[in-house]
Design a protein around this nucleic acid. Structure first.
Length: 585
RNA sequence: GCGCCUGUAGCUCAGUGGAUAGAGCACUUGCCUCCGGAGCAAGGGGCCACAGGUUCAAAUCCUGUCAGGCGCACCA
């Protein structure tokens, strides 16, 4: 297609019809309206000024040449103002799409645009100081979908969870649990002002009473806090792992911040920066010269008291990821961390990598509601809805779909009522229903002793109607949707596509019969089954082809073959998002 | 004060240089003797926040203004 245009451009240049100094690489895309054709191209408009002719004229010259040169490909090449070239392919060309889906099956849509580039995808990375909440769920669903998407597009993806198991938050966890522990044992607690208030802290404290009795009271408070912190974070991390696995989200590696310190990697990182002359001493602290790479100001990495900042550890972590040989680091972060991006970008550059080797996807807040009722959340008071609660209420499939329905960087309103509803109002059910409905048709076909045909068995000329071709063209888009969303790191495009495809399928199915009626229900019938309900007078389509087709066994077979490919694409898309494709609902 | 994100139908949002700006919900009206009605069809509804600029072409890119959200630690 693109080649055909390029070749034609070269030809008209050589023949002198259009003197083009530089041959542009044309872009081709599906036009906004189907009646304009199958593809459109804007190259004539971009050329108009260089060849000093009107875009319409340029388009006209190209159109006649293209049609002359590639009669087997193009049925029609039109010119539309202000200078679009609109191509209509021979309908038979589209049948190949169905054959491709059938032969590639579950791998239809995959590509090699990633060329094996290795990516480490870090996401969730919640502190092991409490249960995962809905916000983490969004990050988890997004990360998992992105990993599948990138893998399907030819990247080598590794998923990693960074465990913040060193530092102040963990200490605070220990102090909170220890305070509750003392409370249970009737001692004065002095619960930390900014501590964790959730009920789970009390449960953890109770379990310590069971396991340790009063022994922690005998230890110096600092030690007791450390013991509590360590044990509590282990338990909480295990719960995080359980929740994620319940949600169908997995990681290749769980990277512990503590190991950075114990292996001395933080100091090594600072030493290397010193060699590169990218740190400075000032006011008794050590600063990273991040402003040399576009950050607003330099950042402290080692405090006056000699301890490292969180940034220092994070720099060591990112250096480690680069040292492990990954080409690209992708981080999924909560949007409240956006101020951190320049620092991390500077870090990557400080170690000699392109700034593009770090890509950060920001995820905005999720606000929950039931119908019009907003659910208030306050993390500080320990009042928040956990991921587990959401999964238990609406199910993993619905939760994932809702998390993936919006662009990551916009706020998400998650209506629990809607997610539970089993109706077309609920987009998850709508898409899954399309899959289940097809499964049911195939079951019914077999009950009626109609064997499921493959493309080879079928008279493909019966699939050239406008509705069939429309469906096929949507199926043909799928690989491009995957490619686009992989490059942009935007899985939400797939949820939109699936809703489109499902809608088109439902419409088709409603309008066209596939299976003949069951034998016992035809008894008094002598009129043949007709297809295409002439809904009202307006359905008078543009003429030529009749809306009514006799439902012969051949037609049934052809339509079944088409629907099987639709089902495959629905399933592939859902699978990619980590959502199940039910046979029955 | 500085920075980042967002501003599109009544609501929730797609659409990042192309032609007449789309979908779902809500609202109105129709469609099952029949393969899953958990569905379909039709209708109304828009100064794409505002103002300039770049371009053959702007919701989309640039500048400014306004509004909302979030950041701006020798916290993590």
């Amino acid at each position: 297609m693109v080649d055909a245009i390029s070749m034609t451009l070269i030809k008209v240049n050589e023949s002198g019809e259009l003197p083009i100094n530089r041959i542009p690489s044309p872009t081709v895309e599906p036009p906004k309206r189907p009646e304009w054709g199958d593809f459109s191209c804007n190259v004539a408009m971009t050329l108009a000024s260089t060849v000093k002719q009107s875009p319409l004229k340029v388009a006209q010259i190209l159109a006649t040449n293209l049609l002359k040169q590639f009669p087997e490909l193009f049925k029609q090449v039109d010119v539309a103002p202000p200078g679009f070239l609109n191509f209509t392919l021979h309908p038979m060309c589209w049948i190949d799409v169905l054959r491709a889906i059938e032969s590639h099956d579950s791998s239809y849509g995959t590509s090699q645009i990633g060329k094996g580039t290795s990516i480490i995808l870090e996401f969730v990375s919640a502190n092991p100081t409490g249960p995962l909440h809905v916000g983490h769920g969004r990050g988890a669903a997004l990360g998992q979908a992105m990993a599948s998407l990138l893998t399907a597009s030819g990247y080598a993806v590794s998923r990693e969870f960074y465990i913040n198991d060193a530092g102040r938050q963990l200490q605070l966890l220990g102090r909170s649990v220890y305070a509750r522990y003392r409370e249970i044992l009737g001692k004065d607690s002095n619960f930390p002002e900014d501590g964790y208030y959730g009920d789970y802290i009390k449960e953890l404290a109770e379990s310590f009473v069971h396991s340790h009795g009063e022994t922690l009271l005998e230890q110096p408070p600092d030690e007791a806090v450390a013991v509590a912190a360590h044990a509590a974070s282990q338990i909480l991390l295990d719960r995080i792992k359980e929740d994620l696995s319940l949600f169908g989200v997995n990681f290749e590696t769980w990277f512990s911040e503590t190991t950075l310190h114990s292996k001395g990697l933080v100091q090594q990182t600072l030493d290397e920066l010193r060699v590169r002359d990218l740190v400075k001493e000032e006011d008794g602290a050590l600063w990273f010269r991040s402003s040399e790479f576009g950050d607003d100001k330099d950042r402290v990495v080692k405090k006056q008291d000699g301890s490292y900042t969180y940034l220092a550890a994070d720099m060591a972590y990112h250096r480690d990821k680069l040292d492990r040989g990954f080409d690209t680091l992708v981080n999924i972060w909560g949007a409240d961390h956006h101020g951190y991006i320049p620092r991390m970008t500077a870090t990557v550059q400080a170690f000699g990598h392109e700034k593009e080797s770090l890509r950060v996807v920001l995820v905005q807040m999720v606000s929950l509601s039931r119908g019009t009722q907003k659910i208030e959340m306050s993390k500080r008071a320990g009042e928040f809805v956990t991921l587990r609660e959401v999964i238990e209420e609406v199910g993993s499939d619905a939760a994932k779909f809702f998390f993936l329905m919006r662009r990551a960087d916009t706020h998400l309103d998650f209506d629990l009522e809607l997610a539970k509803q089993q109706s077309s109002d609920n987009p998850v059910y709508y898409v899954q229903y399309a899959h289940a409905r097809l499964a049911s048709v195939f079951r019914m076909a077999q009950e009626r002793h109609v064997t499921l045909p493959t493309m080879e068995d079928v008279d493909v000329s019966l699939l050239l109607g406008a509705d069939e071709l429309g469906l096929i063209k949507t199926l043909a888009q799928y690989p491009f949707i995957l490619e686009g969303s992989a490059l942009a790191l935007e899985p939400h495009r797939i949820t939109f596509y699936l809703q489109d495809l499902a809608a088109q399928l439902h419409a088709y199915y409603n309008k066209h019969r596939v299976l003949p009626a069951a034998e016992n229900s035809v008894k008094s019938e002598d009129r043949p089954h007709e297809d295409g309900v002439p809904t009202n007078g307006k359905a008078s389509n543009v003429g030529h082809e009749s809306t009514k087709t006799q439902l012969t066994p051949d037609v049934t077979a052809a339509r079944l073959a088409l629907l099987r490919q639709v089902q495959t694409v629905l399933r592939n898309g859902l699978t990619l998002l980590g959502i199940s494709s039910p046979e029955k609902m």
